[in-house]
């Protein structure tokens, strides 16, 4: 039996889709070893409403800690609450977004529990929960077990389809705010600067258009019309982010976001190991690059050797013509 606690993620007071990937993973653990899952929602006063968005997913309980001191996420304040809600649960689970990566190891340490990061699958081997993890930029999978009775896990969003509602209505219960440690006294939230966009989120999009160093200052000028015509999210290589052509959180790769859309277009991206690690699970990969030897072509389903500054506008025109 595995009782699982999913730690939900909120953004601006509503539930992020990352949470639904964790729910999928929790259901899978329950299928493997029995038990139920619950969901813990933490946040400011708005968390109460957010919890209502999660009552239809088959959780035994939806636990809420809504408190003004949790309005802005800080691991130093969230980890104590998660740890206080943990008794009775065997597995604590979140998605390895920047939130999950920041919070869950801290939760694990607080519980003196072992942690497995960014897992792409869960299985049962000889009765033990076994976590599959991509390592070495996705060039090996490790299958690990954790030795502590309570276990903390984060899962890779792109490997767990968001859970669909399953009907029913979970009971909602409040959990008390736990007193934070001294660390919370010495950290202060200053600001969260988020660019609001009409586009789908990178990690959730059905189509992703990514650009590399080659785009230079015309990054958005060239890619936006293409993304618009495909309803795509925009991503970037590290080189494009480092150079300031695209914001840092657009970065796709081993050390950026991992995406697995239906369609991924790599525009003026060479295809370094670190980039490939973040997009090679995409169903269809298209590469446009003027260098026929660029490594990206080794994993692309369709490669076009061309100058992107000509090919991309041409592609936009062709896509528009199809729609018309």
């Amino acid at each position: 039996m595995s009782e699982v606690l999913v730690v939900a993620e909120l953004s601006d007071g509503s539930v992020r889709k990352t949470t639904h990937s964790s729910i999928r993973a929790a259901r899978k653990i329950n299928e493997l070893s029995g038990g139920t899952f619950s969901i813990l929602v933490l946040g400011g006063p708005a968390a109460k409403d957010a919890a209502q968005q999660l009552v239809g997913y088959g959780a035994a309980r939806v636990l809420v800690c809504a408190d003004a001191t949790l309005t802005h996420y800080l691991a130093e304040r969230y980890a104590p609450v998660v740890a206080a809600a943990a008794p009775g649960f065997d597995v604590l689970l979140a998605t390895a977004s920047s939130y999950g990566k920041d919070l869950m190891p801290r939760v694990a340490a607080r519980l003196d529990a072992a942690y497995a990061a960014d897992c792409s699958d869960v299985s049962l081997e000889a009765g033990q929960l076994t976590l599959k993890r991509p390592m070495y930029a996705g060039n090996a999978y490790g299958f690990c077990t954790l030795s502590t009775t309570q276990q903390v896990v984060s899962v890779r969003q792109s490997e767990f389809e968001p859970a669909e509602p399953s009907g029913g209505k979970s009971a909602v219960a409040d959990v008390a705010l736990a007193a934070p440690g001294g660390a919370a006294e010495r950290v202060e939230f200053v600001s969260l600067d988020q660019v609001k966009s009409e586009r789908p989120e990178l990690a959730e999009a059905r189509v992703v258009v990514s650009g590399g160093r080659a785009l230079k200052e015309d990054f958005f000028k060239v890619l936006e019309p293409l993304a618009d015509s495909l309803g795509a999210a925009i991503g970037a290589s590290r080189a494009a982010c480092d150079a300031g052509y695209a914001p840092g959180d657009f970065q796709v790769g081993q050390t950026g976001k991992v995406v697995a859309p239906e369609l991924y277009l790599a525009i003026g991206i060479s295809g370094a190991i670190q980039h490939i690690a973040g997009m090679k699970s995409s169903r269809i990969i298209v590469a446009i690059n003027k260098d026929a030897e660029a490594p990206i072509f080794q994993i692309a389903d369709y490669g076009l050797v061309a100058d992107l500054f000509q090919a991309v506008p041409e592609l936009v025109t062709a896509l528009k013509a199809r729609k018309a």
Binding site: F143, C144, T148, K280, I299, G303
Partner: peptide, 18 residues
């Protein structure tokens, strides 16, 4: 606390067409 029981290579992806 973390024990790797085994390792496996990732699925390979073949180059498609130009």
């Amino acid at each position: 606390r973390t024990r790797y029981r085994k390792f496996a290579p990732p699925a390979t992806r073949r180059a498609g067409a130009k």
